[in-house]
Computed example of a mutant assay.
Amino acid sequence: MKGELLKGYYYCTAVVVVIIINGVVDGAASLASKKKGGGGSDACSCYFVFGDSQADNGNNNDMLEREYGRARADYKPYGIDFPPSSSSSSFIPTGRFTNGRNVPDFIAQFLGFRDYIPPFRTTKSQTILKGANYASGGAGILLETGRTLGEVSSIKKQLENHNYTISQMHRLFGSSSKLKSYLKECLYTVQIGSNDYLNNYFMPTIYMTSTQYSPQAFATALNEDLSRQLKILYEQGARKVAIFGVGSIGCTPYARANFEHIGLPCVDKINTAIQLFNAGLKSLVEHLNANLPSAKFTFIDVFKISTVDPLNYGKMNLDAPCCEVGAGEMQCTPFGKVCENRRDYMFFDGVHPTENGFELVASSAFNAKQPDEAYPFDINHLVHLS
Results as ranks from 00 to 15, higher is better:
Gly3Lys: 14
Gly3Glu: 12
Cys12Trp: 13
Thr13Trp: 15
Val15Asn: 11
Gly23Leu: 08
Leu31Gly: 03
Phe48His: 09
Gly58Asn: 05
Asp62Gly: 07
Arg70Val: 11
Tyr75Leu: 04
Pro77Thr: 02
Pro84Cys: 07
Pro84Met: 05
Arg101Ala: 01
Asn102Ile: 12
Ala108Gln: 03
Leu111Glu: 06
Leu111Thr: 03
Arg114Val: 15
Ile117Arg: 01
Pro119Gly: 12
Thr127Leu: 07
Ser153Glu: 07
Lys156Tyr: 10
Lys156Arg: 10
Asn161His: 06
Tyr164Arg: 09
Met169Gly: 06
Met169Ile: 10
Leu179Gly: 06
Ser194Asp: 12
Met203Lys: 09
Ser210Arg: 14
Ala221Trp: 05
Asp225Leu: 04
Leu226Phe: 08
Leu230Lys: 05
Leu230Met: 05
Val241His: 00
Val241Asn: 00
Tyr254Lys: 13
Asn271Gly: 11
Asn271Val: 11
Asn271Tyr: 10
Thr272Cys: 14
Gln275Thr: 12
Ser283Trp: 07
Glu286Tyr: 10
Leu288Pro: 01
Ala290Gly: 07
Leu292Ser: 00
Pro293Ile: 00
Ala295Leu: 01
Phe303Ser: 05
Gly314Met: 03
Ala327Ile: 08
Gly328Asp: 11
Phe335Lys: 13
Phe335Met: 10
Phe335Thr: 13
Phe348Cys: 03
Gly357Asp: 04
Pro371Cys: 06
Ile379Thr: 00
